[in-house]
Amino acid sequence: MTTKRMQTIEKIFNKTTSSKQIHEGVLFVENTIGNFSYSKGYGGKDMDSPMLMASITKLFTTTCILALLEKGELSLDDRLTNYFDNELLSGIHVYGSREYSFDLTLSDLLFQISGLPDVFEEGTNSAKSRAIEEDYYTTFSEQVALVKKLRPHFAPRTKGKAYYADINFDMLGEIIEKVTNTTLAEAYKKYIFEPLTLESTYLPEHENDFIPNIYYKDKSIYRPKVIRSSRASGGCITTARELMIFMKAFFGGKLFNKELFEQLTASNKLQATMGPIFYGSGYMRIPLDGLITLFMGKGELMGHSGSTGSFAFYYPIKDLFMVGDLNQMGNAALPIRLSMRLAMTTK
């Protein structure tokens, strides 16, 4: 059975990497106790090659928020006015001629239900389209100013609505720094890297910190300033080996109170451009029993993917963790499709 499962996984990965869109990649699949384990690299990458986590970094930010929640150092009901001055918040959320900027809470950010727009994907000169052309640094206050130029999508906490926007997690990162009185990198180190003994995972802060190249279609681009600007929403570097350690700890209750985490069950479907993805308390949920799979799957994938081709998911029904990277910024759906295929066809 194990050999057959490995052959299936290998076949799926080989088919994925045979695409002209993929120039390099890595896949690592394992069950909780590790007696089933499969890994394979492509294009010179392996389990210990540095990879850009991109939005999987949001799971690190979520970890810190939940750890601080457990310690009673913040509440998800806290308003953003507890952490930011009125000048910064003013005008960030005006919808239907009403201002909601001062009503936003931590929960709105964590669950992606603030309604705030996403400067990475939206606007005539979106951060993504600009990053493809040039490397540039953006401060947090500059990111907020860009958000204010775009229109929110709905009033906060509108029933059944969620909208994926990096600013939600950029703000959570700032809040973590204010609550802990340290840098975000230090908070990640305290709540994640040190407890799990992760030695190859880091949040780049300095010019000499190594940042991998990213592929956009056939072009390899180097964007250290863009990555260092992304911080809490997408700036971390790791390896597939260490990402697996983190994912098991995240869903296994090693980093924060698992009961607390399991109480945060609400999730809402994201905007249509995000396909079948729902968003829960700081992580993606992808149901496998819907129209997208012609109702042929069961259960759901839980975790996160990144816009550069990174992925980290847990499939509870088969007790499988799958992490890796396809390093392709030109098609954000690739890691989602691979993860869904692995979950649905692996016995």
Score class of each variant (00 low, 15 high):
2 T>D: 15
3 T>K: 15
4 K>Q: 15
6 M>T: 15
6 M>C: 14
15 K>L: 11
18 S>M: 10
19 S>Q: 13
21 Q>H: 13
24 E>M: 11
26 V>D: 05
27 L>S: 05
31 N>I: 06
32 T>G: 04
32 T>A: 12
34 G>H: 08
37 S>R: 13
40 K>W: 07
45 K>L: 12
48 D>A: 10
48 D>R: 11
49 S>W: 01
50 P>G: 01
53 M>V: 03
54 A>T: 07
56 I>C: 08
56 I>N: 08
56 I>H: 04
60 F>V: 02
61 T>C: 00
64 C>F: 03
65 I>H: 06
66 L>P: 04
69 L>M: 10
71 K>A: 13
71 K>N: 12
71 K>Q: 15
72 G>R: 01
79 R>K: 11
82 N>T: 13
94 V>T: 15
101 S>H: 09
111 F>L: 11
115 G>L: 01
116 L>E: 03
116 L>T: 07
119 V>E: 14
123 G>I: 02
125 N>S: 09
126 S>I: 03
130 R>G: 03
133 E>W: 00
133 E>C: 05
138 T>I: 12
139 T>Q: 06
143 Q>W: 01
144 V>Y: 07
144 V>D: 09
147 V>N: 06
151 R>G: 11
152 P>M: 09
153 H>Q: 03
155 A>T: 00
157 R>L: 09
162 A>K: 05
166 D>T: 05
168 N>R: 02
168 N>G: 00
170 D>E: 11
173 G>H: 01
175 I>N: 06
177 E>M: 10
188 Y>L: 06
194 E>F: 05
202 Y>W: 10
204 P>Y: 00
204 P>T: 02
207 E>T: 14
211 I>L: 06
212 P>N: 09
215 Y>Q: 09
217 K>C: 04
217 K>F: 14
220 S>E: 15
222 Y>F: 13
229 S>M: 02
232 A>I: 04
233 S>Y: 01
239 T>E: 07
239 T>Q: 06
240 A>N: 09
242 E>D: 05
244 M>Y: 10
247 M>P: 10
249 A>N: 10
253 G>I: 07
258 K>L: 15
258 K>E: 14
267 S>K: 15
272 A>P: 13
274 M>I: 04
277 I>R: 01
282 G>L: 01
282 G>A: 02
282 G>Q: 00
282 G>N: 03
285 R>G: 07
290 G>M: 02
293 T>H: 03
296 M>H: 12
303 G>D: 08
304 H>L: 02
306 G>E: 04
307 S>L: 13
308 T>E: 12
310 S>C: 01
317 I>C: 00
318 K>F: 00
318 K>Y: 11
318 K>M: 10
323 V>H: 05
323 V>Y: 02
323 V>L: 01
330 G>Y: 06
331 N>L: 13
331 N>D: 15
338 L>T: 08
339 S>T: 12
343 A>Q: 04
343 A>F: 04
